[in-house]
Design a protein around this nucleic acid. Structure first.
Lengths: 266, 266
DNA sequence: GTGCCTCGTATTGTCAGACAACCCGCCTGT
DNA sequence: ACAGGCGGGTTGTCTGACAATACGAGGCAC
């Protein structure tokens, strides 16, 4: 079974091996717990040297995708053990045609719970440059909204850039890295969401409101606005809040913000 | 300069090379942007084969710690580019004697902002098994509190286990992985905190209150209790909330929870 | 003197082959 | 029946070589 990786030469062979095997693992060719082919078998099937095969396997092992034992072989790890906070892993998942629905749900749940908080932090800490990034992203979204959304991903891309800009606006290393790492995963969710929506103006308006709250340094309003954006996305994704349990948590917080009396919550 | 890695044999050579070079990078032996020794020079200095050296370098490159160019060599990346959400990187940072204070601050800021939310999510989603893990961790903490804390890390270890159990209680893949990945980093913060505190009973009591709120499925109370724990830790770490800007964000939320009327907040 | 071209050197990427360390199942001897 | 040795199989490490690329020195034409 000659897969002949060597067609593409702009990437190290080991990375291409890792990517190919990663897709096979995602496709279910090898189930968790199964033994993968030995290094020599992979050498034959891919038509590369053992050094390159080992390079690819090491890349997968360092991310918890596989585990290797001297004298025993290589086994596929359970998906729970995958280091899903690694850029390569998230890229792999985003590229895959049919990502595990559980994972899409997990990612959206995380965003639903975290992004309001992130927006509140950004409202406190964002600097002028961060606002510029957000504004540019929104302007680009508006410019693309006239065209057919399903045709190209430019609208989705700028949508994602906007959300990433908010994470960066927290000026915290961990939140910033989270945005960078989850970027492919966020793209996945946002693309799906934008594919099913029929009205982009609403999306655009909510994003603008969120940016305005951050600009006004109003954490409570930013929390609320981000929650509204996420609710809209949830509707487009056809995810009923409460199905999973997690998404409804931030709701009382938003309600409390409206009721409470610290910040000027609208 | 024979560093003679081969003393420890219970770990692959490549990983030992990576760890040694990682510590050198953290120590400032090579500054970001500098060129690292060539593979052949490392072969001589470590006394291992080029294959092992390459294995170690690849492990570092895959985590954004170094970047390699054909025909040019290897350069040290800026710390901002490090994939700090990788277990090996966080382990490296935790092992290092004097981790960058900026990073410790970032990690604590992140926890300060996120853990109240995580606690609220756990209050919604935690199952009986998660409560068992929390209770066991607290019992172990209580058992260790009689001994000298500075002497051994058992108290700290169980403290960290408690926090990790809360993350797991969210039943969300991303939060769960975050806890796993940040475990060494959390240990770093908790150990420092526990070293400087003189009264462990207070720490224990607040942890118990947090667990009780989660047990009672009261997100608002859990949010509040977690905030109290984090404030205590901040005090022990001698971090004035507001110094960095980020930590003060959750405070108004806590205030709103106390003022608001959804859950039985304490 | 200056600018361009070429070639050599240095470095990482890839290949090939071999041995070492280790695990497992089989087989033999008691 | 059971214990121990033994051999095949797999990953880890070593060695040596060549390929691909980048940079700089040197020569050459103008």
């Amino acid at each position: 079974m000659k897969q002949s990786i060597s067609a593409n030469k702009d990437q190290p062979l080991g990375d291409q091996i890792a990517e190919a095997l990663g897709h096979e693992l995602l496709s279910g060719t090898y189930r968790p717990g199964d033994a993968l082919p030995t290094e020599m078998e992979l050498v034959e099937s891919f038509g590369v040297s053992r050094a390159s095969v080992r390079s690819g396997l090491q890349a997968l092992a360092s991310r918890g995708i596989i585990e290797r034992f001297v004298g025993q072989g290589t086994i596929a790890q359970d998906f729970r053990d995958w280091n899903i906070l690694d850029p390569m892993v998230t890229g792999l998942l985003a590229d895959h045609a049919s990502p595990h629905p559980d994972l899409v749900r997990s990612i959206f749940e995380f965003r639903y719970s975290a992004e309001p908080l992130v927006a509140a932090l950004a409202a406190r800490n964002a600097r002028a440059r961060d606002l510029v990034a957000m504004e540019d992203a929104i302007d680009d979204m508006a410019r693309c909204s006239s065209r057919d959304v399903a045709a190209d991903d430019s609208f989705t891309e700028h949508d994602v850039s906007f959300h990433v800009a908010i994470y960066r606006g927290t000026h915290n290393a961990i939140w910033r890295h989270l945005a960078h790492i989850l970027r492919p995963a966020i793209t996945l969710v946002v693309r799906r969401s934008n594919e099913t929506t029929e009205e982009l103006r609403e999306t655009l308006a909510r994003h603008r409101a969120l940016m305005e709250a951050i600009r006004m340094r109003d954490p409570a309003a930013a929390y609320d606005a981000a929650l509204a954006v996420m609710r809209l996305t949830a509707g487009e994704l056809d995810i009923a809040p409460g199905t999973t349990g997690a998404p409804e948590i931030p709701d009382p917080m938003g309600a409390l913000f409206r009721a409470g009396g610290t910040g000027a919550a609208r």
